[in-house]
Write a protein that binds this DNA or RNA. Structure first.
Lengths: 342, 342
DNA sequence: GGAGACATTGTTAGCGCTAACATTCCCCCC
DNA sequence: GGGGGGAATGTTAGCGCTAACAATGTCTCC
C-alpha cells in the first residue's frame, strides 16, 4: 500500500492502492463520465498518497499527441520578439500545451530549417514561427512536414496563417502626425531590406507622404541597432541633407539618431522632429522622450496560439485556411516632435 | 516498398524496406557498433526514402529519458533574462537536448511552483531556473521532486547549484571608478529589495565605499524600471540631496535617472556622474553615453546548462554538489562620468 | 580441421498508457 | 419475476521503441 520500492509509482500501483483496475485510474485522470464519486475519491486519494504522476511519454505514444508546440524565435534578445514569446507562452500554457523553444542567432533559411527539424524530432504538434524575414517564410510549409504553422510578425505571407501588427498603418500614423505638425516631408531610417516589418513601415511611410502630396525621398536602411541609426543620421548631417522630420523604423535606431543629432548640435524637437517605433519601456525617458508607435506584442502572441490551436483542433492538414489577423498599432505622442522652424 | 498507406512510417516499415529486422534499424539510429557498413547504408537509404522519423515518445517510454530540460524564466522581456535564455537554449541544443520554457509574469513562489509542476507533467529531466529572487529559490529543491535544478542569476543560494555574474565585484568596480575620479562618495539607486542581484550590488557598493573610508548613505530602492529611476532622482533633486556621483543598479533605471537630471538642469557628467549596470545595446547612445557594467549573459546560460548536464550524467539525485560558478563582470567606460566640480 | 572468440543479425519481452470490447451489477417496468 | 437498458468496472491488445538474450556466421590459431 505504501510507495513501491525505488521506482516511481505507475498507474498499476495506484490501481492496487485504490483497489480498482488501472483503467479506472485512467478514467479518473482523463475525466471520463461513469465513474462513481466514491471510486473517484478513492483513486484521487491513492494518487495523492503515492505521489503518482502520469507518464507523458506513454500517454503520447498511444494518443499520438504530445501536447507540445514548437516555437522558432529569431533573436529573442530584442524587445519585440521577447514580448511576443511571453504572449505565446502564456496562451499556450493556459490551453494546456507545452512550449518547446528554439532561438536563432541569425534569420537564415538554413537555421530556420534546422530549428524546425530539431522540433520535429521532438514530435511537436505544430509550429509558431516568430520570423520577420521574407527569406525565412518561403520554405516554411514544406519544412513543417504537414503540421500546422503560424507565422507571427511575418508580414503578409501568402501561404501561411499569419498574425501581425498593422505595421503599415502604424507607419502612416507616424508620418501623418509629422505632416500635420507642418513638416513639408519626412525622412525615413528603415530596417533591413529583407525584413517584412521594415518593408511594411517603408510602405506606410511612402503611402502617407504620397497621399499628402509630399515629396518622397530615398529611405536609408539600417540594421535595427542603435549604431546604425547613429551612423545614418551622422551621414545625413555631414551631407547637410537632414530633413526637418525623421521617422525611424524602431526605437533602438531612434536612440542612435537622437544621439547623432545631439552631437551635431541639432535640437529635438526644435530643429528636427523624430518618431520611433515599438515603444520600448525606456522610450518615455530618452532625451527628449520619444514619440513612437506602440505594438501589442502580447496580443500578437496570444492570437498566434489561438490560430494554431484552431488548426490543431480542426485537424486542418496545413496552411489551407491562411488566416490573417492584424493587430492595430497605437501612436504614443511624447516630446520628440514639434512644428518645423520657419 | 513505397510509403505505407496513410500513416507515418514506423521502424518496422523501414526494416521491411531495407530487408533487416527492426532492431537493426534501431542500432543504426543509435549509432551502435557492430553493424556492417553495407547494412547501415541500406537502412539509411530506406529511412531517407520513406521519410521516416523516430517516435520520440516511444523512445522516451523505454529509455526513461525525454531529453527535455525545463526552463523557468522570470520576465524574459528584460534584457538580461532574454539573453540568458538564448545562451541556455544554444548550449542545450548543442548537447542534443530540448528546451521547454515557462515564463512568469511575477516572481512569486506560487508561480514558480506552478511552473515547475507544469514542466514536471512533461517529464523534464532537469530544471534551469532564471530566478533572481530570494523567495523564489527557497522551496526550489523540494518542488523539483528529485530532479536536478540549477539556478541562474540566483546569487549565492546555498542549497542549489548556481551560476551568476559577479554582481558584487561589478558594483565594486563601478564605485571604485567613481571614487578614483575624485568623488567624495557615491549614491546608489538599488533594485527591488527581494532581488538577489540587487542585494549583491548594494553589498558591492557599500563594500567599495567602506574600503575607501567614504561615507555610506542610504540606498534608494527602485523596481528596475525607467520610471522608478526617474522618480527617485527627482526626489533627490527636490530634497537637494543629490550626490556628485550615482551608481544606478541597472541601465533602465539609469535612463530614467539621466532624464530626471536633464529636466532638473543638472549636467552629466559635469555636475553629476552616473554609472549603470547591464550594458544594454542602447547604453552607448544615451545622452550622454552611459558608463556601465557589462554582464556576459550568454556565458551564464551556457554554464548553467553545463552544470545541469553534468548533474544529469552523473546521476546525482539532487543538489548535493552545489556547484557555484561566478562569471566576472566587465566595466565599460563611456561619457557619463567625470571628476566632481570643485 | 575444429574450438573458441567475436562480429553481425534476429527474436522476444516489456516500457506505461488508452481504446475497444467484455462483463457485472442494479434498477425499472411490464 | 424476468428481461432490457444503462451505469460502473474489468480485461485485452496494442502504440513504437530499446534492452537483453539467442542465434547465426566468420575468422583465427594451434
Amino acid at each position: 500500500m505504501a510507495a513501491p520500492p525505488g521506482r516511481m509509482p505507475v498507474m498499476a500501483d495506484v490501481a492496487r492502492a485504490a483497489g480498482v483496475s488501472h483503467q479506472t485510474v485512467s478514467r479518473v485522470l482523463n475525466g471520463h463520465p461513469n465513474v462513481r464519486a466514491e471510486t473517484q475519491a478513492r483513486v484521487l486519494a491513492a494518487i495523492d498518497e503515492l505521489g503518482y504522476r502520469p507518464n507523458s511519454s506513454a500517454r503520447a505514444l498511444v494518443t499520438r499527441r504530445t501536447g507540445v508546440i514548437g516555437v522558432v524565435a529569431v533573436d529573442t534578445a530584442h524587445y519585440g520578439p521577447a514580448r511576443t514569446l511571453t504572449g505565446i507562452e502564456h496562451a499556450a500554457r493556459a490551453a494546456g500545451y507545452y512550449l518547446s523553444v528554439v532561438t536563432l542567432t541569425e534569420a537564415s533559411a538554413g537555421q530556420v530549417r534546422e530549428a524546425m527539424d530539431h522540433l520535429a524530432r521532438q514530435s511537436v504538434e505544430g509550429y509558431v514561427v516568430i520570423a520577420p524575414q521574407r527569406s525565412v517564410l518561403e520554405g516554411m510549409p514544406e519544412w513543417a512536414g504537414g503540421s500546422p504553422v503560424v507565422a507571427v510578425e511575418g508580414g503578409e505571407a501568402r501561404e501561411l496563417p499569419v498574425v501581425c501588427v498593422d505595421q503599415e498603418g502604424g507607419a502612416r500614423m507616424a508620418v501623418r502626425h509629422l505632416l500635420e505638425l507642418g513638416h513639408r516631408t519626412v525622412g525615413h531610417i528603415a530596417g533591413p531590406r529583407d525584413w517584412l516589418e521594415a518593408e511594411s513601415r517603408v510602405a506606410g511611410w511612402r503611402g502617407a507622404l504620397e497621399e499628402a502630396g509630399a515629396p518622397v525621398g530615398e529611405p536609408l536602411f539600417g540594421d535595427w541597432r542603435p549604431r546604425s541609426g547613429y551612423e545614418l543620421v551622422r551621414s545625413l548631417v555631414e551631407r547637410d541633407a537632414l530633413p526637418t522630420a525623421l521617422f525611424v523604423a524602431n526605437d533602438q535606431m531612434a536612440v542612435g539618431a537622437l544621439r547623432a543629432l545631439a552631437e551635431a548640435g541639432v535640437r529635438v524637437p526644435e530643429d528636427v522632429s523624430v518618431v520611433g517605433f515599438d515603444d520600448v519601456p525606456e522610450a518615455a525617458y530618452y532625451s527628449p522622450p520619444l514619440t513612437t508607435v506602440a505594438q501589442d506584442f502580447t496580443e500578437v502572441g496570444r492570437r498566434g496560439i489561438g490560430i494554431l490551436l484552431d488548426l490543431l483542433d480542426s485537424g486542418e492538414p496545413a496552411a489551407e485556411s491562411a488566416a490573417r489577423e492584424v493587430v492595430p498599432a497605437r501612436m504614443v505622442v511624447r516630446a520628440s516632435c514639434g512644428a518645423p522652424a520657419r
